[in-house]
């Protein structure tokens, strides 16, 4: 086993809980001063980080947190029980789809490496959060979590959103984006592609 593989193993398994070294690694360490020094450096760093390995709320903070969360949940439940016009859900869903369309268009239009831009979106399919469907997203917005929009559009849900778009729909969806929305999307998405 060469030194780089040993160092890669040590680095990749560096965690606050520690880890066991397999026999081939320990065998190499017995023979290699440089890798032993590397391991020692990592152990020293781990020891330095120990004091913040577990950060907890104080009892007072816990009470405040639980009280605040319960109130927020009650408020959310109350809000959800109020009437939500169907066309509002539809427009929000359409907004999310339009955002995905813009993502694709921008990947094609603004990225000098078109294949790469599209691949970024396609690779997101592998993400575990593709479970969020457009109805759920619409409900998130309706429930008032407006700051979810940027993350939904920019991050993990982009792949799912792209899945929702059928061939030929992109132009129609893009037409649904207002100039203001388009400006916002361009400002927020260009950095991500």
């Amino acid at each position: 086993m060469d030194c780089q593989k040993v160092k890669d193993f040590i680095r990749d398994n560096f965690m606050s809980t520690g880890y066991d070294l397999p026999r081939d690694i320990t065998g190499h360490l017995d023979e290699c001063t440089e890798c032993r020094a590397y391991l020692e450096e990592m152990n020293i760093l781990g020891a330095k980080l120990d004091p913040i390995a577990e950060i907890s709320m104080s009892p007072e903070e816990t009470i405040d947190f639980e009280t605040g969360l319960n109130r927020a949940i009650e408020a959310a439940d109350a809000e959800q029980s109020t009437y939500v016009p169907e066309n509002r859900i539809f427009s929000l869903t359409r907004m999310a789809l339009a955002a995905a369309a813009v993502l694709i268009m921008m990947a094609v239009s603004f990225n000098s490496d078109m294949t790469n831009g599209l691949a970024v979106l396609q690779n997101m399919d592998a993400l575990q959060l593709s479970q969020v469907d457009t109805d759920d997203m619409a409900m998130m917005f309706v429930n008032g979590d407006s700051d979810l929009l940027p993350s939904l559009v920019e991050d993990e849900s982009a792949a799912y959103l792209t899945d929702q778009i059928k061939p030929g729909q992109a132009d129609d969806i893009l037409d649904a984006v207002t100039a203001e929305e388009l400006e916002w999307l361009m400002e927020n998405l260009t950095m991500e592609i």
């Binding site: 927020a72 479970q131 759920d136 998130m140």
Partner: peptide
């Protein structure tokens, strides 16, 4: 503390969308 509360509120609101793939 605020963001922890926001996190659990969002989780509560979107539990129905959690399909346990992760």
């Amino acid at each position: 503390l605020d963001l922890t509360q926001d996190t659990f509120l969002a989780a509560y609101q979107n539990l129905s969308g959690f399909r346990q793939e992760a």
